[in-house]
Design a protein around this nucleic acid. Structure first.
Lengths: 255, 255
DNA sequence: CAGTGGTCTAGACCACATT
DNA sequence: ATGTGGTCTAGACCACTGT
């Protein structure tokens, strides 16, 4: 069988940046450029092979990597789709509280407050903005099985969420991450969380309907886009009397 | 090009259990049967292709899946190795506490207690043993940056850890998971953790050198083998004054 | 140098979903 | 019937490692 010594366009692949990475990069670029939008089909594998000038195997390797990270979703017989946030996806990927029975359930969310603030030192660092930058701050109360469970305080860089208002938050019927995606074209790709124990102060005790000094989880979450830029800082204060934070780890590490 | 209508031995692959899964299963079986031991090289890909009667692409797909879960490790130019536990691996995969600066550090471990007990209801359920089954219970105190941080209470089914004694625990110089692997031929493949907030009682306060009522994290971990059988139940009580529990999640889900 | 994994090709047939 | 992704083949050359 005859194999050309060099790939046509880009002068063959270097080690560490093989051809399928380049293909992956081009696919991500097309998604960033909104050529294909969340939930839409992308062209068939055969057509993408021609477009990028690679074989099926190489294209599939590129798509495989985007599938495991959730950027793309394959549906046999239908096509390959750009991943999108949904309530189920949120529940499965980003919401870690479960009942004592281990069952997952989408929480009841009640809007609590909305404000415009300026980034302090810590917040600016976490969000990668300048100290004093305009931020939106919103707060929700979450319930599981009808019981108040958690209070969230969420900080968003105003620049990326231009036009966000209290009314839009009150009216929304989707998860916040769906709203980021559909209304602001921001897709949350991964989150990083740090957890500490803390005692309820007077304010938290009132909101969470518990005693002052009750042990809570403080969860500090930073959410990142596909380009790995931080886009949301969230503090959650969780009363774990009737629920638990659940997570799992594998022997191997995730790349 | 001519392709045979059927695979030789096993009558072609069914949907949902394709050929590369069968190959994967056979590789895992060989590891379970100790044909290849943790840290050892397995035969080259070409030889495995012949052994299983499949092509390179199929074999690589099987190996790929075992690599992402850490069962196998590829080293270019050297070969493919059976994964093994190490201190670094533990730190990276299973130890989630970091300093407030976000830096990881292997904790100082001080042996605290060893006992033989019988499984109660909850423990039996978690470990998949009968109520009343013999268990070993051991307890350690963990320190980060020289400061007492966490108290662990670990339950192990005595049946699988025959011969474990207090002296062996005191003498050990490796992580527990290395000991499970090297001395008992048990490899921890994944863990599942549930986290709650709790207040220090008198005993915990003394061990962790803090006040009664201080907010702690209670982490309940179950560790599983490659066959997904529970093998360890661990309660950790963590003082998060100088450290945090850190975790991350991706858009896609892990399979 | 020989042997290993890493990448890539050009196709084939299978299983699924829609028309 | 057509088109999609899912699986599989039988090789090729590239890059790395140890002798």
């Amino acid at each position: 069988m005859v194999v050309p010594k060099k790939k046509s366009a880009n002068g063959w692949s270097l080690p560490g940046s093989p051809l399928y990475r380049e293909v992956r990069r081009q696919i991500v670029n097309a998604i960033d450029a909104l050529e294909w939008r969340p939930g839409e089909v992308i062209p068939s594998e055969k057509i993408l092979c021609e477009r990028f000038g690679v074989s099926m195997g190489t294209l599939r390797k590129a798509v495989d990597e985007l599938v495991v990270t959730g950027v793309l979703v394959r549906k046999q017989g239908l096509g390959t789709f750009v991943g999108q946030h949904s309530q189920n996806r949120y529940l499965f990927s980003f919401f870690h509280l479960v009942g004592r029975d281990g069952q997952k359930e989408y929480p009841g969310v009640v809007f609590r407050a909305f404000a415009v603030t300026a980034a302090d030192n810590v917040t600016a660092q976490s969000l990668g903005v300048k100290v004093g930058a305009r931020l939106f701050c919103l707060s929700n109360v979450l319930s599981l099985q009808g019981k108040v469970t958690s209070m969230d305080e969420i900080y968003l860089p105003a620049l990326q969420f231009r036009g966000l208002t209290e009314q839009r938050l009150r009216d929304r019927r989707t998860t916040l991450y769906q709203m980021y995606q559909d209304e602001f074209r921001i897709t949350v790709a991964r989150t990083s969380e740090r957890i500490r124990g803390c005692a309820a102060n007077r304010s938290l005790a009132r909101v969470l309907q518990t005693d002052i000094g009750a042990p809570l989880l403080e969860i500090i979450r930073v959410a990142y886009t596909f380009q790995d830029r931080p886009i949301e800082l969230r503090y959650s204060y969780v009363k774990t009397e009737k629920c638990e934070y659940q997570t799992g780890t594998y022997f191997g590490s995730r790349t």
